[in-house]
Design a protein around this nucleic acid. Sequence first.
DNA 1: CGCCAGGCCGTGT
DNA 2: ACACGGCATGGC
Length: 231
Amino acid sequence: MTPPVRLRALYETLAAVYGPQRWWPSDSALETMIGACLTQGTAWTSVERSLTNLRERGLLEFNALQKVPEEELRELIRPSGFMQRKAATLRALLDLLEQEYEGSIDQMAQAPPAAVRAQLLAIRGIGDETADAILLYALGQPVMVVDEYLRRVVIRHGLAPARARYAELQQLAMAAFAEERNSAAMANHCNEFHALVVQVGKAHCGRRPDCAPCPLRGDLDQHQQGQPAAY
DNA sequence: CGCCAGGCCGTGT
DNA sequence: ACACGGCATGGC
């Protein structure tokens, strides 16, 4: 079987085990974008605290958030760490929204995804993964988010060389849904797949000796079975 | 107390 | 091209 087909099988396995994930957990597209930036190198529980700070002050809304001085913003997002960089990144993101899309995320979602991606990548603090997370989870575009967990799973299962770069892994993952012609359905698969990979990654990262048997264990090649879990 | 988290970037080789 | 350290904080 080709790597995309095997990857599709892994996706089905995870979907059967964990069920629908329905990511991204948030009440609005703006909150999703903010969360995507705040979660970089940070546990989600810490991000939630920052989002709560913003919510309590009614700042999960474009116009209100736009008015907040960066210094104050820093304090509000302190719980999720890297506050100086992240506050600046959020400001730049709001500026992009205002200057290019009249502060409307709906309008941003109508623009060509490639152009939006380039604009996001131009912001300091937003790289490939965060840009794609925003495209997928906030704007509904059919793109896979490649994170460290997906990378580990793909390499571990021998579906890509250990050296594979972001774009290569992304193409491979999306090729798993090549049969899907409907854009919305494709976006839904990307959405679920990434969320599922994060779930299995968190539960079976292989660093804890007492970690439960990985649901994907049966999909590993025979000669890989005995090795310690790598994700 | 030590390691890690739903990354990214600047620097040195 | 690739490795490495800094960025900050909270959970376990």
